[in-house]
Amino acid sequence: MKFLTTFQLGDFLDTLVSLGVAFVLATLIGAERQYRQRTAGLRTNVLVAVGAAAFVDLAMHLNGTHGGVHVIAYVVSGIGFLGAGVIMKQGMDVRGLNTAATLWASAAVGSCAGADMVAQAAALTIFVLAGNTLLRPLVNAINRIPLNEKATEATYYFKLAVTSHALPAMRDRLVEQLEAAHYPVADVEVAEIGDGQLEIVAKLVPTAADPNELNAVALEMQKQSGVRHATWEVNTAD
């Protein structure tokens, strides 16, 4: 049994320190996520950090610094798949990006701990916690600033509710009206909305727009035969 001949108490204690540091620091990060009821909470962040620390520590013991660098590269790419699992898209809203980024940072904390860089792991933990807590008031303050459509590049969606027989003509007319107003259309989709009506959704090329100009297009389209309703909305999310 090779364990009896290869076991070294010093290496084992070094591994325990790496895993312990990753566990404690990730607990701090995960506790903040758990408090805010995020998808990836306390246990997930701890497991990510401890797992990353274990892989890096193993590689360091088997092949030194060179092996650790290789494993860290795989941890960085591999954690992306785990982060993708917590990102959810609901309509035009995307949620979970911050949680995925926190998981990525927890893996970095674990990698530092596995590479015996305890001070760096602690410093990174402080920065992650600061990003998730101290910056929150600033984010809320920025979000409360009224949106200036003329100065903000965003994606605009122009929606037209029409009858089925008016669909072909109104789809072409909408594109013509928008392009005449110098708002090129990137894509047009059609969906059923019930009561024999269809909804034409024209996605504009991301740009800064004048609400008055879009309102003018909406008023013009609403005068057309077969058009039940015309409106537009904006999405500023990246």
Rank of each mutant, 00 (worst) to 15 (best):
G91Y: 09
A166S: 15
N45W: 04
V185P: 08
L135F: 15
T155F: 06
R171S: 07
R33P: 09
V56Q: 03
A108V: 08
V17T: 11
G64Q: 07
V175L: 06
F81M: 05
V56I: 15
Q34F: 02
P184D: 09
T99K: 06
Q8G: 06
E149C: 07
V139G: 06
A230M: 03
Y156W: 12
V118E: 00
M117L: 15
A119L: 14
N140K: 11
S106G: 03
L178K: 05
D57T: 14
R144F: 02
Y157I: 05
E176T: 13
G51D: 07
A169T: 12
D210Y: 12
H229L: 09
E149H: 13
N143K: 13
R228N: 12
L13E: 07
A218M: 06
W232I: 06
A54I: 05
M170S: 05
Q37H: 14
M92D: 11
A49P: 07
G110E: 06
L124S: 09
T102Q: 01
M117N: 00
I87W: 08
N45I: 05
T6Q: 14
D187V: 04
Q224T: 11
A101Y: 02
A151Q: 15
Q90G: 00
Q177E: 15
E233C: 01
G80W: 06
T125A: 02
V94N: 02
A53G: 10
L82N: 03
A107C: 09
Y157G: 00
Q177R: 15
A166M: 07
L167W: 05
G68F: 06
T125H: 03
N98T: 15
L62C: 01
V69A: 14
S164V: 13
G68P: 05
A59D: 02
L42C: 04
V109C: 02
V71F: 02
S18Q: 14
S18C: 15
L25Y: 04
G78W: 11
A119E: 03
A52G: 04
L58A: 14
E220K: 14
F3G: 01
A191Q: 12
G196Y: 10
I200G: 01
I193Y: 04
W232H: 03
T152I: 10
V86Q: 04
D93V: 13
V190E: 08
V227I: 11
P168W: 08
R171H: 04
T155E: 14
R136C: 00
L219K: 12
L198C: 01
T236Y: 02
N98S: 14
V46N: 01
A53V: 10
L129T: 03
L135Q: 01
V50T: 11
T102E: 01
A181N: 08
G78F: 10
A115T: 02
L58N: 06
N45A: 03
S111R: 04
V17R: 12
V175F: 01
V162R: 03
D187G: 00
K159Q: 10
P184Q: 10
D195F: 13
H61I: 05
